[in-house]
Design a binder for these strands. Structure first.
Length: 259
DNA sequence: ATGGCTATCGCGGATAGA
């Protein structure tokens, strides 16, 4: 079973890129972020024609997340992150596919910092930690996949000082990510590549892709019940170099079928 | 400190992203 996450940065603007990658990579489950489309603007027909069932939550201009399943219909278990009914952002969806509970999440960026956006980032990620604790306690296979908007360690960003004040790299942000790992979740990309440099995002500006000036922001966290079935994990970097690409590349894991 | 790119919405320029 291959499970992927991809911050698509506008699903309609980038539908051709997405369909080409689906055909080439053949993932069984895809978590998408930054749809940038209202619910009714989601290209459901094209996704279905590609062989995928889909569930999603949209929003007029920003955010928006989805879960796709090859030859299957995801069974929705949540369409928002619990903990704040006043939070209207479409940043979280959760569904069961093939015996695995999948969460597709798009954490707030948090810039500029300090300020209300940074406060929202920290509060949202605290809510994610609470939801993750509930899911972990179920002792079932779970994958938390998406754009966490946190660079876990200094080696997960290219050598630069320009991000020193950025919300993505702050000790507070990193401590939140560490608390998720401390619950028992496995960072699949890091687990499979303990010493490599891994990036999933390259800014459009200043030739950051051409210079490989990237950041690791997109993560797949596996509950113990999935981690012990982990076979491989990687980033489809080539996708970032395609014409009209998203500024993120897809990341994915493969796991053995249930023992 | 700013600008640098790209997106939506909608037709100019504001706002967000990271």
């Amino acid at each position: 079973m291959k499970i992927a996450t991809f911050n698509i940065n506008g699903i309609n603007r980038r539908l051709d890129n997405l369909l080409a990658w689906l055909k080439a990579a053949e993932p069984d489950v895809v978590c998408l972020q930054e749809l940038k489309a209202r619910h009714e603007q989601f290209p459901a027909a094209a996704i279905e024609a590609a062989g995928y069932g889909a569930v999603w939550v949209g929003e007029p201009r920003w955010n928006g997340v989805a879960i796709l399943a090859r030859d299957a219909e995801p069974i929705v278990t949540a369409t928002s992150l619990p903990g704040d009914p006043a939070d209207r952002h479409s940043r979280y969806i959760e569904a069961a596919v093939g015996g695995v509970l999948i969460a597709s999440l798009y954490a707030p960026n948090g810039n500029p910092r300090p300020g209300p956006k940074y406060d929202y980032k920290l509060a949202w990620t605290e809510r994610l930690i609470s939801r993750a604790a509930e899911l972990e306690a179920m002792k079932v296979p779970v994958v938390l996949a998406g754009d966490f908007n946190i660079v876990p360690e200094p080696r997960d960003i290219y050598p630069t000082r320009s991000y020193d004040e950025n919300a993505l790299v702050q000790p507070e942000s990193r401590a939140l990510y560490q608390r998720l790992l401390d619950q028992g979740w496995a960072d699949a990309l890091r687990k499979k590549h303990p010493r490599e440099t891994i990036y999933t995002f390259w800014d459009y500006m200043r030739q950051r892709w051409e210079r490989d000036a990237g950041l690791r922001l997109d993560h797949l966290l596996l509950s113990k019940q999935v981690a012990r079935r982990l076979v491989s994990a990687d980033v489809d970097r080539d996708v970032r170099g395609m014409p009209g690409a998203s500024d993120h590349a897809p990341a994915w894991v493969t796991v053995r079928s249930r023992e």
